[in-house]
């Protein structure tokens, strides 16, 4: 039987959840024996080359590109897992949800105290750039998500136990210390 295939992505996240995945330390050698990685920033495979079994999603949806990537993952993965607070509830990027989008952009590009070079006071408006959404959305409000692993980041043990349970079909045991929202 061929190995289960895993794909991962970062949407509006900080790569912390991916770092936490790498925090499984030497167990990564075990993981490589158990699974195969497809599209992921870890191996730098940019496009899906086959149907995957598990997709790990870090980060919420902040712009149109995030939504496109997320929908692409839903299409190409049998199981989608929201990894971390940002994927689950928008996380820190969602702190902009109470502020009008124009105000956010002006603060970042024109009026902010660290803005020095933007003398023409231009807001990014190139067609090539993804369009910002009105607010940051949790992934499960955009597509169907099968499992959720909370944490900022989810602990390496939580990710490892969850992946192992998904791959082997064993029951997932969650000790109290493992599930945390920060």
């Amino acid at each position: 039987m061929s190995k289960p295939v895993i794909a991962t992505a970062t949407l509006a996240g900080c790569f912390g959840c991916h770092m936490s995945l790498l925090d499984i330390d030497e167990r990564i050698l075990e993981l490589i024996e158990l699974v195969e990685f497809n599209k992921s920033p870890i191996n730098d495979i940019k496009t899906f080359t086959k149907q995957c079994d598990i997709g790990l999603i870090e980060g919420g949806c902040s712009n149109s590109e995030n939504i496109e990537v997320l929908k692409d993952f839903r299409k190409n993965c049998k199981i989608l897992v929201s990894l971390g607070e940002c994927a689950i509830m928008g996380g820190l990027p969602a702190m902009r949800n109470g502020i009008p989008i124009r105000e956010c952009l002006e603060e970042a590009y024109i009026t902010g105290p660290t803005v020095r070079m933007n003398t023409k006071k231009i807001l990014p408006n190139d067609d090539e750039l993804p369009m910002m959404l009105d607010k940051v959305y949790p992934c499960h409000e955009i597509v169907k998500i099968d499992y959720f692993l909370p944490g900022c980041p989810p602990t390496a043990d939580l990710i490892w136990n969850a992946l192992l349970a998904l791959v082997t079909g064993d029951e997932l045991k969650l000790p109290y210390e493992v599930v945390k929202f920060d």
Binding site: E85, I88, L92, M95, Y147, L149, P150, C152, F181, D182
Partner: peptide, 23 residues
């Protein structure tokens, strides 16, 4: 926003979510 809240870890709402294993 638990990761950005100073009460995190001492918050009773969060603690109940942990107790009930809210994912």
């Amino acid at each position: 926003f638990c990761p950005g809240c100073e009460k995190s870890g001492n918050c009773e709402l969060q603690a109940l979510a942990y107790r009930f294993q809210m994912m």
